[in-house]
């Protein structure tokens, strides 16, 4: 099974996403972007489901930018999940190289469908 990293400071959201994905992917979790980056460097996952607004020195946009500007990491499929619903935020996500952008509240089934199509 391919591995996905789920990054969100809300434990409920991480649990919901992991539960939705469990038949298709193995999942690991991080509750902030700094820990996520350490995990990615240690063992790059196939994809990342990444919240934008999180405590720590980096937010989701900044982590996305780091991943997509690193030739060794840029193949990782990045899905941003955020409570920021403005078009400007989505455009920023796209400009940083995010592969998809889901606005909360979102359908976990739609997320599974997207990831199975893109990462399997």
């Amino acid at each position: 099974m391919k591995k996905l990293l789920i990054v969100d400071d809300q434990v409920n959201i991480r649990r919901m996403i992991c539960l939705a994905l469990r038949d298709h992917f193995s999942t690991v979790e991080a509750d902030n972007a700094d820990s996520a980056y350490t995990m990615i460097l240690a063992e790059p996952p196939t994809g990342i489901v990444l919240d934008v607004m999180m405590p720590g020195s980096m937010n989701g946009f900044q982590l996305c930018q780091r991943i997509k500007s690193d030739p060794a990491l840029r193949a990782i499929h990045v899905v941003l999940i955020t409570a920021c619903g403005q078009v400007a935020d989505q455009e920023l996500g796209r400009s940083l190289g995010a592969d998809a952008y889901f606005v909360k509240p979102f359908s976990p089934l739609a997320l599974v469908q997207h990831l199975t199509r893109s990462c399997c």
């Binding site: 809300q10 409920n12 959201i13 919901m16 996403i17 939705a20 409570a83 909360k104 509240p105 979102f106 359908s107 976990p108």
Partner: peptide, 8 residues
């Protein structure tokens, strides 16, 4: 945030 959990 809570809406996302409720929906999901």
């Amino acid at each position: 945030e809570p809406l996302a959990s409720i929906y999901g």
